[in-house]
Simulated assay, not measured.
Amino acid sequence: MNELAKSLSEKEARQEEAHQALKKADQAISDANKRLRTLSAERRGVENRLAQLRRDGRRVESELGETERKIGQISRAQYLQMRRPAWQSWINGVSPGERTLETALLGYLQVAQVRAADDLEKQQADIRQVADETRTRSNELTRIQRDEEKSRTDLLAEKKERQEAASSLKREIADTQAELDKLRKDQARLGSLVATIDARLEKERAAEAAAARRAEEEAAKKAQRPAKVTPAPSGTAFAKLKGRLAKPVDGRIAARFGTKRTGSATWQGIRFRAPEGADVRAVAAGTVVFADWLRGYGNLIIVDHGGNYLSVYANNDTLLKNVGERVQQGETIGAVGSSGGDDEPGLYFELRHRGKPVNPSPWLGV
């Protein structure tokens, strides 16, 4: 259970790392989306600018064509005026002064139209330059947007992987938590069993004490002497064995009483690692009061030592004693195994007094 708690802590730490990674991925995707929106808006602005420049170009080209047409008309009028004889102007009622004024006016119009054409050509050149720069920016924005979209696609793929990892960790944590909950229920189940056994033994002891008193009273009446009251067993004999109990198995200690299992739960006994089939021995003389399978503890044997002291031996491969049998200190009562779903062979040992677990280490001298 201690290993499960450690595994759960590690998985929860990894889950926190996964959540932080997801947070960074989400933030990066958000930033990428923001940049893409900005780029799209700028690109739309550039495209609109290009469209306006194309419209301006067409307008200037049209105006330039019209101006060139007018220049042509003026040039033709000047040419015709120069070719027209003076007498023809006189016949048409045009005086020499009017003809001179007409010539000057045509010259002025031609100069004005030429200047207008020059201005339009300059505008046309400016529009081409701005259009070229705008197209360059548009192409640059297209490239940047393409790179940003690729980066966003990569980020989404990375986020998907991290989400899958986080989901997998969540399932693992749920499984581990479920197993820990199961262990707590198993622990409560053993406590309930011990309480039931204690209550039954207490009744049996009370009945035996009452029977002994009645027998003593009857014997006293016959002998005409005061009745001697026999006290109930106090467990003094077992208490004197503290520090001298037999070791229940030859093996190394994997977990000690009181060490953390998970959350606020602690080990209520000692977990020994030992080879499968190794002898499991009674720590002191007593009577077997339970020898059966119990969920979470596998093949379980419990020995009553009197005075409300019980010793508990779990995960046995084989139970060699039956309920009601007397056993002596050091006598083999079972064989090491991994029953009850344990991963490795070993023995789980508890010592209880009045139903409550006590630290076995001072009693075993380990």
Score class of each variant (00 low, 15 high):
residue 279 D to E: 15
residue 25 A to H: 08
residue 322 N to P: 12
residue 263 G to T: 09
residue 311 S to M: 11
residue 52 Q to L: 01
residue 352 R to M: 02
residue 245 L to A: 09
residue 142 T to R: 10
residue 298 G to L: 07
residue 79 Y to S: 15
residue 124 Q to A: 10
residue 223 A to N: 06
residue 340 G to R: 13
residue 237 A to M: 00
residue 63 E to C: 03
residue 311 S to N: 13
residue 25 A to S: 12
residue 5 A to K: 02
residue 62 S to G: 13
residue 25 A to K: 10
residue 69 R to D: 15
residue 164 E to T: 12
residue 365 G to L: 08
residue 201 L to D: 01
residue 55 R to G: 00
residue 18 A to G: 01
residue 341 G to P: 09
residue 348 Y to D: 01
residue 217 E to K: 14
residue 270 I to S: 07
residue 116 A to W: 06
residue 242 K to A: 13
residue 26 D to F: 00
residue 71 I to Q: 13
residue 340 G to H: 03
residue 224 Q to R: 15
residue 323 V to I: 06
residue 235 G to I: 01
residue 89 S to H: 08
residue 251 G to S: 12
residue 345 P to I: 14
residue 197 I to T: 05
residue 100 T to V: 02
residue 296 G to N: 09
residue 80 L to T: 12
residue 199 A to I: 01
residue 7 S to L: 11
residue 62 S to E: 12
residue 30 S to N: 14
residue 276 E to F: 00
residue 355 G to Q: 03
residue 225 R to D: 05
residue 257 F to N: 08
residue 53 L to Q: 00
residue 328 Q to V: 13
residue 220 A to M: 11
residue 132 D to M: 04
residue 26 D to A: 06
residue 351 L to K: 05
residue 176 T to R: 12
residue 277 G to I: 07
residue 125 A to T: 11
residue 43 R to Q: 08
residue 212 A to Q: 10
residue 171 R to N: 13
residue 246 A to V: 15
residue 60 V to R: 04
residue 331 E to W: 06
residue 108 Y to T: 14
residue 331 E to T: 09
residue 177 Q to C: 07
residue 60 V to K: 02
residue 262 T to L: 05
residue 141 L to M: 01
residue 119 D to Q: 11
residue 365 G to H: 12
residue 13 A to H: 04
residue 25 A to E: 02
residue 189 R to S: 15
residue 43 R to N: 08
residue 208 E to N: 06
residue 159 K to M: 11
residue 342 D to M: 11
residue 209 A to V: 06
residue 141 L to Q: 05
residue 66 E to A: 15
residue 226 P to G: 07
residue 247 K to V: 14
residue 39 L to I: 09
residue 171 R to S: 13
residue 278 A to H: 12
residue 253 I to V: 04
residue 251 G to Q: 12
residue 70 K to Q: 14
residue 49 R to T: 07
residue 132 D to N: 06
residue 64 L to N: 03
residue 56 D to C: 02
residue 276 E to H: 03
residue 275 P to V: 15
residue 202 E to A: 04
residue 127 I to T: 09
residue 190 L to A: 02
residue 364 L to C: 09
residue 191 G to K: 05
residue 166 A to T: 03
residue 95 S to I: 03
residue 285 A to K: 07
residue 21 A to G: 01
residue 200 R to A: 06
residue 259 T to P: 00
residue 178 A to N: 10
residue 46 V to I: 00
residue 330 G to L: 04
residue 103 T to N: 01
residue 296 G to K: 06
residue 142 T to I: 02
residue 67 T to H: 10
residue 163 Q to D: 14
residue 4 L to V: 00
residue 355 G to I: 01
residue 128 R to P: 12
residue 160 K to V: 05
residue 311 S to F: 08
residue 218 E to L: 10
residue 327 V to I: 08
residue 94 V to A: 00
residue 335 A to S: 15
residue 365 G to A: 08
residue 5 A to S: 05
residue 188 A to R: 14
residue 198 D to M: 00
residue 5 A to N: 04
